[in-house]
């Protein structure tokens, strides 16, 4: 033993055990981390042009709710979610499309005809007819579909929808 070896039998065993243990741990542990966080790394975004209806059917000056559904595959299961937007024709040529999703925590806002405001049922936020915050906790106005996110084809109003 003495002379040729600088490492004791015990230490050799300890080091080998630690090394093999680390290799096995990493070989299982690292893939396991990828396995666990996998859903968070999936893109999952699919955009589409959603038809909201004939433009002429929306009354000028009155916010009208248009709803549509989108289906989505989550793992081994397919779920169908419904979404809504408020369409307001401000004039014969101009249209404003607002998401009905409250910018506070995501509840669905309703148009209140008497008050001429959008009211969120969750924490009582109020938005004006153009989507600006009039009161309550929301940090920003209702999301708008504008510019190249909106188009009219054959008289049908479409929005470019990114969620779902």
């Amino acid at each position: 033993m003495a002379g040729s070896h600088h490492i004791s039998r015990r230490d050799f065993i300890k080091i080998t055990t630690a090394a093999v243990g680390t290799v096995i741990g990493a070989a299982i542990g690292l893939p396991a981390i990828a396995f666990l966080i996998d859903p968070a790394l999936k893109a999952g975004k699919a955009d589409a042009w959603m038809p909201l209806g004939k433009l002429v059917d929306f009354e000028v000056g009155k916010p009208t709710l248009a709803t549509f559904t989108r289906s989505k595959v989550n793992g081994w299961e397919k779920s169908v979610n419904s979404y809504g937007v408020f369409v307001l024709r401000t004039s014969d040529t101009e249209t404003l499309v607002l998401s009905n999703k409250c910018t506070h925590l995501g509840c669905h806002v309703n148009w209140n005809v008497d008050k001429q405001e959008y009211i969120c049922p969750c924490h009582d936020a109020q938005f004006g007819i153009n989507g600006d915050v009039l009161g309550g906790p929301p940090p920003r106005p209702l999301d708008r579909f504008s510019g190249d996110q909106v188009k009219v084809e054959d008289g049908t109003l479409l929005i470019h929808f990114l969620e779902g």
Binding site: P31, A34, F35, W76, E77
Partner: peptide, 22 residues
């Protein structure tokens, strides 16, 4: 869902084949 969830583990989840294989 049992069968589909396992198919998903094998084909849809990163390293699912490895974890299930072990």
């Amino acid at each position: 869902h049992a069968y589909d969830s396992i198919q998903y583990i094998m084909n849809g989840v990163a390293f699912g084949w490895l974890i299930r294989g072990i």
